[in-house]
Each structure stands twice: as C-alpha cells, then as structure tokens.
Amino acid sequence: MDKTQALLVLALALFSLGLAGVVVRRNLLVMLMSMELMLNGVNLSLVTFANQMGAAEGAVLVFLIFVVAAAEIAIAIPIVLLLARRRHTLDADAYADLKG
C-alpha cells in the first residue's frame, strides 16, 4: 500500500467514524464534533488527491471548506445553547417531538 492509498484509507476511516458518532452518540455537542471529524476526513482526502495530481484546485476547495466549517459552527453553537436553555438537556432524545 503506497502513501496515497494509506492516506485515503485514513480519510475514509475518519469519515466513517464521524458518521458513527453522529448516529450513535446522545449528546448534541458530541454529535457536532463528529460532524467536524467527517469534514476533516473529507479535507484529508482532498489534500491527498490534490497532492497526488499536482492540482492546486483541491487546496482551494479545502480553504472554502474551512470557511464553511467556521460559519456552520458559528450558527450551530448558538442553536445548541438555545436548545439547552429551553429544555435543560442536550440529550437528542429530548427533542424527538421535533420530527414532523
């Protein structure tokens, strides 16, 4: 297994771990952290491909993902705080009545 393949396997493993965290965990904040883990896996795969192909476009995309991640967290954290203030818990099951 060469370097590119090993890095891709790492990126895929991080993405799958993040998905497992989003589904399996109960705490809203840890679910958000798992989403960050998924984004990091995608970033690693983009950097690996860009490095392999010698294409700078992949790195541009990684930069844009940085910005989107910052914006996402700037929205998600106030919403989580608001939910915690309303129901006094971060348990995702406590918000089961949100489903349509």
Binding site: S16, L17, L19, A20, R25, R26, N27, H88, D91
Partner: peptide
C-alpha cells in the same frame, strides 16, 4: 445533564453496523 452520563443512543448497534459497512465498502 443526563446526556453527559449516558453515552449512546438506542441506535448504537445499527449505527455502528452502518458505519462499519460504509468504511469497509469505501
């Protein structure tokens, strides 16, 4: 907060299985 004490949701086994399957396939 009880969410800090109980770690996993009831979807532990299906969720882990789906993630493992996705990882294996990819």
């Amino acid at each position: 907060d009880p969410a800090f004490r109980r770690r996993f949701s009831p979807l532990l086994f299906p969720g882990a299985a789906v993630a493992l399957g996705l990882a294996a396939t990819l």
